[in-house]
């Protein structure tokens, strides 16, 4: 069972409007007992940082579908570091295999691709929060 304490902020950065995945993940995580703060579309890294502080979040989840992950995900990691927030960033969406290594190197804690099950998603969040994330 999920730790009921885990609270995650979910957001879409930038202009991309593909929110089906993030909406489904929000429901999956809520059903699994997580507390989800759904920020929705058109968020900036600053907006996500301020929500993470306000909500005392344990993790940040981003959904990226527009090949912008190599630009936006590292910026999110950096923005949290700059705000002294030591919480993991989890990325879901269309991420080619070749980009997984560089994203991990940039500090992304976990990467979830298309077809990840509800159990995969919940486990990835738990592991990331516990600091033992695996891709």
């Amino acid at each position: 069972m999920a730790d009921p304490q885990i609270r995650i902020v979910l957001a879409k950065l930038g202009l991309d409007g593909h929110d089906r995945g993030l909406r489904v993940v929000t429901r999956m995580l809520r059903d699994a007992g997580f507390e989800v703060v759904y920020l929705g579309l058109r968020q900036t890294t600053e907006m996500v940082v301020s929500a993470a502080i306000q909500e005392d979040a344990d993790a940040v989840g981003l959904s990226l579908h527009n090949a912008s992950h190599m630009t936006l995900a590292p910026r999110m990691v950096q923005a949290l570091r700059d705000a002294d927030l030591d919480i993991p960033v989890i990325v879901g969406g269309i991420i080619p295999d070749d980009d997984i290594g560089p994203l991990r190197d940039a500090g992304v804690a976990a990467i979830l691709g298309p077809g990840a099950s509800a159990a995969d998603v919940a486990q990835a969040v738990r592991d990331a929060v516990a600091g033992s994330a695996t891709v």
Partner: peptide, 22 residues
């Protein structure tokens, strides 16, 4: 691309990482 679809120019802060991608 997404910036064009949203009426943003390529030099907008919003367009970062999305210019010419999709």
């Amino acid at each position: 691309d997404m910036p064009t679809l949203m009426g943003r120019d390529s030099d907008s802060e919003w367009s970062l990482g999305e210019v010419g991608r999709a």
